[in-house]
Amino acid sequence: MGKGDKKTKRGKINRGTFGVRRPRVKKKLSVETKIDISTKVNPK
């Protein structure tokens, strides 16, 4: 159980792969995509 083990988190980090033990971190939405300027109502 260590760097050479395919099924452990440390082994996944060593190999640079992802799986059940080390899932990929999803990117968060940026502020620009959440607030769409073009859809705002223009005041008269």
Results as ranks from 00 to 15, higher is better:
M1D: 14
M1N: 13
M1E: 13
G2A: 04
G2F: 01
G2R: 05
G2P: 01
G2L: 02
K3P: 00
G4W: 05
D5I: 00
D5H: 05
D5A: 04
K6G: 02
K6P: 15
K6N: 03
K6T: 03
K6Q: 05
T8R: 02
T8N: 01
T8G: 00
K9G: 02
K9I: 06
R10L: 15
R10K: 12
R10M: 06
R10T: 07
R10F: 09
G11P: 00
G11V: 05
G11K: 01
G11H: 03
G11L: 04
G11D: 00
G11C: 02
G11M: 00
G11W: 04
G11F: 06
K12W: 03
K12D: 04
K12P: 01
K12F: 07
I13R: 11
I13A: 04
I13S: 01
N14A: 15
N14R: 11
N14C: 07
N14I: 05
N14E: 15
N14S: 14
R15Y: 01
R15G: 00
R15W: 01
G16I: 08
G16N: 06
G16M: 07
T17L: 07
T17V: 15
T17Y: 00
T17P: 00
T17S: 07
F18S: 08
F18M: 08
F18I: 09
G19W: 07
V20I: 07
V20L: 09
V20C: 04
R21I: 03
R21D: 09
R21A: 15
R21H: 10
R21N: 11
R21Q: 11
R22V: 02
P23T: 01
R24E: 13
R24A: 12
R24H: 09
R24M: 12
V25F: 09
V25L: 11
V25G: 09
V25A: 12
K26A: 10
K26N: 06
K26S: 05
K27A: 14
K28C: 02
K28V: 08
L29P: 05
L29M: 10
L29S: 08
S30M: 07
S30R: 10
S30K: 11
S30Y: 10
S30I: 03
S30H: 10
S30D: 13
E32L: 04
T33Y: 11
T33A: 14
K34W: 03
K34N: 04
K34H: 06
K34D: 03
K34L: 15
I35A: 06
I35V: 12
I35K: 12
I35Q: 09
I35N: 10
D36I: 13
D36P: 04
D36Y: 03
D36N: 15
I37A: 11
I37R: 14
I37P: 13
I37N: 11
S38Q: 12
S38R: 14
S38M: 08
T39G: 02
T39E: 10
T39V: 15
T39K: 15
T39S: 14
T39H: 09
K40A: 01
K40Q: 07
V41C: 08
V41E: 12
V41I: 15
V41W: 11
V41K: 15
N42I: 15
N42L: 14
N42Y: 10
N42H: 08
N42C: 07
P43M: 01
P43D: 06
P43K: 07
P43R: 05
K44A: 15
K44N: 10
K44R: 10
